[in-house]
Design a protein around this nucleic acid. Sequence first.
RNA 1: GGGGAUUUAGCUCAGUUGGUUAGAGCAGCUGCUUUACACGCAGCGGGUCGGGGGUUCGAGUCCCUCAGUCCCCACCA
Length: 871
Amino acid sequence: MDKHYDAKSVEQKWYKFWEEGGFFHEEPGQGTPYSVVIPPPNVTGILHMGHALNQTIQDILVRWRRMQGRNVLWLPGTDHAGIATQNVVEKALRKEGKRRQDLGREAFVERVWEWKRQYGGTIVHQQRMLGNSTDWSRERFTFDEGCSKAVAKVFAQLYNEGLVYKGNYIVNWCPRCGTALANDEVEHEPNHGHFWYVRYPVKGSAAGVKGEAYRDYVMVATTRPETLPGDTAVAVNPKDERYAHLVGKEVILPLTGRTIPVISDDYVDKEFGTGIVKITPAHDPNDFLVGKRHNLAEINIMNGDGTMNELAGAKYEGMDRFKCREAIVADLEEGGFLDHIEDLDNQVGHCYRCHETVESRLSKQWFVKMAPLAKPAIEAVKNGSVRFVPKRWENIYFNWMENIQDWCISRQLWWGHRIPAYTCEKCGELTVAETAPDRCPKCGHAHLEQDPDVLDTWFSSWLWPFSTLGWPAETDDLKFYYPTCDLVTAQDIIFFWVARMVMAGLHFTGQAPFKNIVIHGIVRDAQGRKMSKSLGNSLDPLELIEAYSADALRFSIALITSLECDTKVNKEKFEIGRNFCTKIWNVARFIEMQGVKRRDYDISTLTADEKHILVACDKAAEKVTELLEQYRIQDGALAVYDFIWTQICDWYVEYTKDAPDKERAFAVLNDVFFRALKLLHPYMPFITEEIAHQLGYLAEGESIMKAEYPVPANAIDPSVYDFVNLKREAITALRALRAEYKVPPSVFVKVTLATGNKEIAGELDGLKKAMRAESVELVPAGAELPMPSKLTKLGTVYLSLEGLVDKAAELKRIEGELQKLAGFIKGAEAKLANRQFVEHAPEAIVAEARRKLEENRDKVAQLEKLRKLFS
RNA sequence: GGGGAUUUAGCUCAGUUGGUUAGAGCAGCUGCUUUACACGCAGCGGGUCGGGGGUUCGAGUCCCUCAGUCCCCACCA
């Protein structure tokens, strides 16, 4: 083996071997399925830490299940990401000085496809760098033919069931993207705005045009004066006595002269502003609802691009909304309607893609009725057929599901699944069908126009677990791999995606799409901020792979990630994984250098240390399996790490150097190390594969991916395990004594061990070597020697001091130690004198407390002797 | 406004149903050119478990309360 591990070439080599060798692929039919669909990243995306975390967790589970012998499918793919992708291509067009309208719809969509063919593979390529064992032969795209078929079928079905409807509704509207946005596509941000106080004259009051001429008016405070031409009422709170007399009267809308009523509605907050609100049903979601309650007219004064239309008035028509705001404010001032202006901090919505200020706009959109779909989805989680890990996410899910709003699914974009709704040009009949009808079913006319809108991206994503397996066709894949087992995703798309998938799965296939929803945190920077390009605090997984290797990245992520909370990372944290790689590589080199091949051995002939490592290996295998069953990826990583580093490297390898029978010791080491590599493989796929081959554990053409995952196997009396632990405790105690008394490791010392243990007599030789002792003498338990000592469970370890020791310093140290012990003893005595404790606490606890007390008293006795010795 | 999370060593976090003197990694300190590894080895120090109150023989763990930090949802015209 090379002295240094060349991660890059090893990783490339094995990934190619796995992929080309079909190791990621299985056929449906045989065995117990374990299936997972990847949360499809945006096709425009590049791999970020969030993906690295998400996919590392999945790959660990997937590789582990595969080794357990399950028939595994991990299905990869990408999302066509409507707005995001369209924006990327529009941006490119803009560089050519073109807009999408210049190309026309068909050409533009073709252009996006071309972009997808050229650049859409970026993230798919990057995912391979992580080592994902996804079955690339089944890779899907939410806009491919099969997924599109599923989308059309689902739309038609929902329409026929009366669950899809078209309605006039107030939606979030991005004037730049020219499309409706779902509520969750709007980001609210603090804004330093103004509050304009405007006088609306009461009808019939003294007429006047300028200045203070109106004596009788209502004062309205608004943050959006430009919507004034769309006002169709002013409202007060019904309980507001100040304005009770106004209700039912009419006021004159400034600048327009239009007459509008004063109404009362609970929505109005008496305390806020003046307690009088102008109601603009076409441009504010709350006003829209008020308008519905009071049958108010809805006057849409704005065009889709954010300019004012003719209903805003001739003067403002064609003006940009912000220009119009200035103009209207100026005109209000001019007309004497503007009372004063205040500063106001509020929240303003922005488009999550282009950051333009979002408008509330009245428009015709398609909606899905969600309540009927939500009901069974709530039930599925309640009855346990779908399980959240960790469980607490259930509440968040229920909370959202129980207050679910209808889902606006139409988008005024070109890139996406076009809505399969067709209007007859002749009779106007609307037909919804999976495929375009030849002629109008009502009048037989041949010309039908398809709805220009496309569907929200999530409308294809919510079908992902079954549309990717061939649904609606009853494919073998669908029959075998559906429903899937685990869905692994971050908390931020529980509503966008997870909840909707549960609904869709239940509604269209009659089965929940997955059994377990594993929610992990979000990756944050060291200060706990979200990683973002604008903050420049992102870590690039590819750079980390370059610097530290994919295995290092994966292992570090696994080790520092808890499902319970968000993960804070910085570059240094990935050194853990890199260091671990190096450690494993070095121990492998050590094993190789001995030139002992893996071979069988007779368990009955093994030494205690050899048996110990076998038991430890069983314990580790059991523990890791148990932890992974519970999705405790982090604890599992720690368990493997500890087994390899502490048990194998720090103890067993050291043992082999002085083992009585090296051949046998190494036979055991090879066995244990191969098992450790298998345990580690799900976390670090590359280096484990490489070493398993280098050490000849696997033949050419074989892969550790398909090796059997270790299960506890060695039937060895576990008392050996405890005995070796006792022995180690004694060795550690001696090392500590050496350090305390500054006896260098190069000096061989005289050791005395006061113990009642009989087995240790047979281990003296090994003990001597491990302690770097000139001699180890055994004396009966309880023997007290005037030498520095440490009490261990095996007995008391005495170190004979040959060199000079700084007596004063030692004395001081001993005094301190005694003081500390006195505290412990006092506490323990009080505890044991407490009858309640002795009577109520479990026997084992009490016995342990007694034992501990005795032990501390012994320590005190020893220390007091030493004190005499040094004074 | 509604909901959730979190507060344990200098830092990042474990601590499962209450039960030994609360753990790990990193950082720190001390020693070590021990022929696999200084990305290492050995050892050491460091915590009134956010504050207060309660239940209990016993609380980091359960209950109440206050405070800090963070996130999500809704949102004031």
